[in-house]
Design a protein around this nucleic acid. Structure first.
Lengths: 185, 185
DNA sequence: AATGCCATGTAACGAGTTACATGATTGC
DNA sequence: GCAATCATGTAACTCGTTACATGGCATT
């Protein structure tokens, strides 16, 4: 249900086309929500039909024309309403944890490679987040006016960083456990 | 895709009915995967039809009869195959992060209550996990034979604990940011 | 008499994934 | 000539949620 709201937030931050949204979902918005372009186009259509978005055809030179979406007054009201109603925390889903418990019925040592691979992926993501933090929030000018949007974006990014650090520490813990169970490696 | 595998793992740990599985998904298995009874019954039927599970009708006194499912040889082979193929890390989805970034276009102070509510929920879950850890893994007998299944279950639980601790710290960070942006409260 | 637990399910819908399809331009 | 980027979509499918439905037994 929150994809619509994520789109509203992203378009409020800056209007754009479905294609541009899809790219944002691979980057900053992707820190806390993912979506493919197919899904985005489908939802954009519905939201436009419901009057929560406005569209503007933008002709472009040497590129296909695009539809630039922006949030209508109704869309902003919908977002505001959602912000004021309580939501439940996301349910957790970790494939890897299923695998770890499943390893008891297989060879635990076979999992070491897989856990190491995940550790690398999370390390890469952490590095990527930290680079983004330095780029967008580093050396902040203390004399600059405090910008609520910027502060909140930074707080969300710090959440992503904390998550990746936690995962790295936990995966190290899991690896140590696996090595203890399979001393041969 | 991993619900099937989570069911296989749970039934390998102990055979049981759909109803019992649903309750396990509210407890230990629920630390890393959730599912409702409707979904479980549907998947159990498919898995039985595919020959990955065996069923046994168990008549009961003063209770409805139940169907006890257990993993067939084919089911175990399927699980083993899955354990050996690489999976991608779960995509992250945080409603609350969408709300936090959305608060820039609404009243940031209105979010404080909601964030505090989530903080309480995560605190409750952490307490629940820690109680489970004390109950199931506390005061482990060093002379006991090392049990791989037990060790791996504990490692997964430690992941849940680390996650909740990280969330608590991050939500405190978010609350401090919101208070800075809305000094009136 | 009402509530809650045990036990199983169906139906309808919305969310998300994967594969396929098109067509122009830009850079190597 | 080939691949990548920009830009939009359809179709088919699986996964997940919500609401509805049934019915006996045990407890308060």
């Amino acid at each position: 249900m929150a994809l619509e709201h994520a789109i509203l937030v992203s378009l409020l931050e800056k209007p754009g086309s479905g294609y541009e949204l899809a790219r944002r979902f691979e980057r900053s918005i992707g820190y806390f929500w993912t979506a493919t372009h197919q899904q985005i186009y489908r939802v954009l259509k519905r939201m436009e039909a419901d009057g929560r978005l406005d569209v503007r055809e933008v002709p472009q030179r040497s590129r296909p024309d695009k539809k630039e979406y922006s949030v209508s007054a109704l869309g902003q009201a919908c977002l505001s309403e959602w912000l004021h109603e309580p939501i439940q925390p996301e349910s957790v889903r970790h494939d890897l944890a299923v695998k770890i418990r499943g390893a008891a019925f297989d060879d635990p040592a076979a999992l070491i490679q897989e856990v190491e691979r995940h550790r690398r992926l999370h390390g890469d993501r952490l590095a990527h987040y930290l680079a983004g933090e330095r780029r967008d929030f580093g050396a902040s000018d203390a004399s600059a006016a405090p910008d609520a949007g910027r502060e909140l974006q930074h707080a969300v990014l710090r959440g992503g960083i904390a998550y990746e650090r936690m995962m790295l520490a936990w995966l190290d813990d899991v690896l140590a456990t696996l090595h203890r169970l399979a001393p041969g490696l």
